[in-house]
Simulated assay, not measured.
Amino acid sequence: METAAAPAHDFSMLALFLQADWVVKGVMIGLLVASIWCWAIIANRIAAYAKARRDMAAFDKAFAAGRPLADLRQDYAGKAQSGLSAVFVAAMDEWDKSHAAQAAAGGLQSRLEIALDLAVTEQSAKLEQRLGFLATIGSAGPFVGLFGTVWGIMNAFTAIANAENTSLAVVAPGIAEALLATALGLLAAIPAVIAYNKLSADAGKLISRLEGFADRLVALLSRQIDAGRAL
């Protein structure tokens, strides 16, 4: 009498996940959530940088038109400020406060530089927001996945020892479940690393633009101070 063949083991990703140890399941779920969050950050930063470039281009055009700075400030009064306009408004606020207090002109330029540095730092922090998470997942993701793999392989070898059977049919399912954790770690880490490098470069270009504008604005206001003219 022939013995019925054992049913084939299900190697689908869902089946491997469901059959995995609870620690490996926790690692897989964490990596999957991290991967989804990384893609959400990537989409958010791409949209934010595109908007920042549009806003900077629009402000640059208005600033280069040569209108009086007081009139240009009125155009942005009462609006949410970001990028170049936020740096510009910060300088104008300090200008107005110093003149209202009848402060000496000698210290005005120093105060303007401090106000602009603070504004640039604040806008830079907004541009670099959430990029640290991408860097963390990019560096830690593979190791978290490897931890899940090592834990799963330990369990697989324990099961093999208990079954006293080293055939491939017994070994393969446990190894496959463990290796899935490494695959998920790489799935989270690779896009995070690529996106972090690209987005960091984009943020750096925007920050350089902010710093360049702050320098131009200081030079312009310094000439106004030396000439003793109002805006």
Rank of each mutant, 00 (worst) to 15 (best):
P191M: 02
A163N: 03
K205H: 08
P7E: 15
F143R: 14
A115S: 14
W39A: 07
T121M: 14
Q19Y: 02
A125M: 09
M28H: 06
H9P: 09
I41L: 06
N44L: 07
W37R: 09
G106V: 09
A101W: 01
I29V: 15
T182I: 02
A34N: 11
I194K: 15
G30D: 02
I207K: 13
A48S: 10
I194L: 15
S98I: 04
L146T: 01
A50E: 14
F147N: 07
S12F: 03
I41P: 00
A57P: 00
D60I: 05
M154R: 04
L184D: 01
T121A: 15
L16A: 07
K126E: 02
L112K: 05
A52L: 04
K205A: 08
Q102P: 01
E177K: 15
A192D: 09
A214I: 05
I225L: 13
A86W: 00
S110V: 05
G152Y: 03
V23R: 03
D226K: 15
A195W: 13
V120L: 10
N162F: 08
A135H: 01
G148D: 00
L84V: 03
L18T: 12
L84S: 08
A58V: 06
A70I: 10
A195H: 06
I137N: 00
A86P: 05
T158W: 00
I36L: 15
I190G: 05
L18W: 06
D75P: 04
Y76G: 02
A52V: 02
L116S: 05
W22H: 06
D71M: 09
S82H: 08
W151K: 03
G185E: 09
R67I: 08
G212T: 09
V170I: 11
L184F: 14
Q81E: 11
E211Y: 00
L72F: 00
I225Y: 05
A103H: 14
G26E: 01
P7D: 11
P68N: 14
A140N: 13
S139T: 10
G66K: 14
I160W: 12
D96R: 15
L179W: 07
I207S: 01
A48R: 11
S35D: 05
A47T: 01
L187D: 03
G212F: 06
G204D: 03
T158F: 00
A80Y: 02
S98W: 11
R73H: 04
A159D: 04
G26Y: 02
V170M: 11
S82W: 00
G204C: 04
I153K: 11
E211I: 00
H9D: 12
F133V: 13
M56N: 12
D117M: 11
G66R: 11
Q109N: 10
C38P: 02
I225C: 01
F88R: 13
A70P: 02
D75K: 09
L146S: 09
T182S: 10
L168H: 07
V218S: 12
G145H: 03
V218A: 09
